[in-house]
Design a protein around this nucleic acid. Structure first.
Lengths: 358, 358
DNA sequence: CTGAAAGCGCTTACAG
DNA sequence: CTGAAAGCGCTTACAG
């Protein structure tokens, strides 16, 4: 066993160099897949690497070189469902590329937020950071990152800024599609529950809803548009308002799943059959969306893929030969997925009497 | 600005030493809070540290010293809800201690699992690893960690092993308490839905249920004990079985929330009022538990606290002056919390006619 | 295609 | 209470 390297301590680049009869520089070249190493030399080195189970230490590479092989993920916990998938995508892509993901949960309103970010990046020297909402819209965080010269990519930011990389889906288009689905099922009296005004997705989803309604020449009764704040309770409240009207909507499109779940609960308590008496659609495909009956029709964000793309952008930007990236490639929009389940169905004929088509 | 250190590049320990007129060794002592530095010297150094915004780089500390200030968290994604809280606790505790959390999502059945773990720890050289179920029960993972001499703590492992640190809650006791709650509400015909056999929690929760029933001299009809596998659909199925019996249970205790949600959905579809006709209790306090109506009575695991304790154990074990830890301190059991919500209520008098008390 | 030297920014082991 | 020297394990910049 002693021939397999020093017992008890892991092999280093020197051990590999000695054993393969080359310099550490050549071992380094092989490890980093640099061109210009004789195939036979490469082969010999790789063989020894395998024998000695040599793994270069990140700390040494990071200290000596320009890369740390660390990507940071910053998030604010309440959006746990969103972060879970993002993290999954990021961690897998990192592994494929030999990188590692360091996560930090930050409070978006913390007074020392900038300092926390600075502390993290100056200690870790990550090759890049990924920011999720609402941190990706927090000027203090972005400023701290810029000052510490750390590249970053924003996931679903409120708006695209010139020169700042972002990855998102098309919220408006997805909302339009959900609305179109409801319309195609015969619904015309479709209610919408908005999200909080300070979140960009709220407005975009509402716009998509309006666009679809308008395209089909369906009127949007303001009594059918409710304010919500993306939490269960606001869905319940909106449902009570909507369902107490003399003329009820036949379908409700909630700006997110949590509110849609609230509508579902309220409807069922009032004795309405879903989707028989009321179709309900949400947005997000949260875990709970398939943990109720009927399971919710909703939109799945490509969170996993968004994170993978973000990791790729950061790794690419860190290569020494990184080309200047064109502005339009800096802002990626990934395809989403409509998830049609049992909370929506074709409108019953009889309730379709008083058409609002104009 | 030039007086605040080299422009464009961060301050190093040399900059601090120069400016405070001491050696880098003394700066190191101050940074590491070692004893035996003159108070005035310490003060002077700290002042310069603040002026220069000096932050020691992890890579250099890690390469030179015995610590990396990195803690790893290994998880298998399907348990996302569990992991979210764990990660939250771990990341916060890490920050307090100047550590950072590196996460990796592993597939429990991956053929190269051990290699993945080895790759991670040999590259990162983390000061410790935290494992969540089911990875904490995976021999291949534990073996890889041992071989790489990386300390680890298991979160809620199936069983305690001598000399291996673990943090958990008392599943059996919590299940007993939930059962006692139902009994105290007048229920006697209480059904239980088990989890999958290969998960330790399943058995423990069932034992707790049995213990409470026995203590109150209530018979456990085997027709009221269903098999499940911790997913929604199995709750639905169990509910259909239970509710099709001539004598129905008045309360159902599901081994976890997802199954309880299934029971809730099934009961409501059958036109039963919850909790009026049927009380339902779950286990886990998953996010969805409060996103339905009625919200679920359940048990909250101290996941956040468990993770904090795990981080503390790892940091403590890494100190050079770390004492030998006694076996009983190696296995920590943290207090849980009963979350009583609206899915459980007092038994209606009339249905209580045929008492099963013996 | 390959290598010798220097150095990244810290801690360790030792000396005083 | 403080410091000079060596070294951690790599990459960089350069030379051949």
């Amino acid at each position: 066993m002693a021939s397999l390297g020093k017992v008890g301590s892991a092999a280093t680049i020197n051990d590999v160099a000695d054993r393969s009869g080359v310099s550490i520089k050549t071992v380094s070249r092989v490890i980093n897949q640099e061109a210009g190493v004789h195939p036979l030399t490469r082969e010999r080195v790789l063989k020894v690497v395998a024998e000695l189970k040599y793994r270069p230490k990140l700390s040494a590479r990071s200290l000596a070189g320009a890369r740390s092989f660390l990507i940071g993920l910053l998030y604010y916990d309440p959006s746990a469902a969103f972060v879970g998938d993002v993290q999954q995508g990021a961690t897998l892509r990192c592994r494929e590329a030999g990188y590692h993901l360091v996560v930090e949960s930050l409070h978006n309103d913390a007074p020392d937020l900038a300092q926390q970010v600075t502390r993290m990046v100056s200690a870790l020297q990550p090759d890049g950071m990924i920011l999720t909402p609402p941190l990706c819209d927090n000027p203090a965080v972005l400023k701290a990152l810029r000052e510490n010269q750390t590249p970053y990519v924003l996931l679903s930011p409120a708006r695209n800024a010139k020169g700042i990389a972002s990855v998102r889906m098309d919220d408006a288009k997805a909302a339009e599609e959900i609305t179109n689905l409801l319309i195609s099922l015969g619904h015309e009296r479709i209610a919408f529950i908005k999200g909080p005004e300070d979140q960009a997705a709220s407005g975009l989803r509402y716009q998509g809803f309006l666009r679809a309604m308008k395209a089909h020449r369906l009127s949007v009764d303001q009594e059918f548009v409710c304010d919500g704040d993306f939490v269960f309770a606001s869905g319940v409240e909106a449902a009570h308002q909507l369902l107490s009207r003399r003329v009820r909507p036949t379908a409700v499109f909630a700006g997110n799943d949590d509110m849609a779940l609230g509508v579902l609960a309220a409807a069922q308590r009032l004795g309405l059959a879903v989707p028989g008496d009321l179709s309900i659609a949400g947005f997000d495909d949260s875990p709970a969306a398939s943990l109720v009956w009927p399971p919710l029709t909703t939109v799945r964000q490509p969170k996993n893929a968004m994170a993978r793309v973000a990791v790729e952008m950061l790794i690419a930007a860190n290569r020494t030969d990184a080309p200047e990236v064109a502005e339009d490639i800096l802002h990626r929009v990934l395809p989403h997925e409509l998830v049609v389940r049992d909370s929506t169905s074709r409108l019953k004929e009889k309730t379709n009497v008083q058409s609002k088509r104009r």
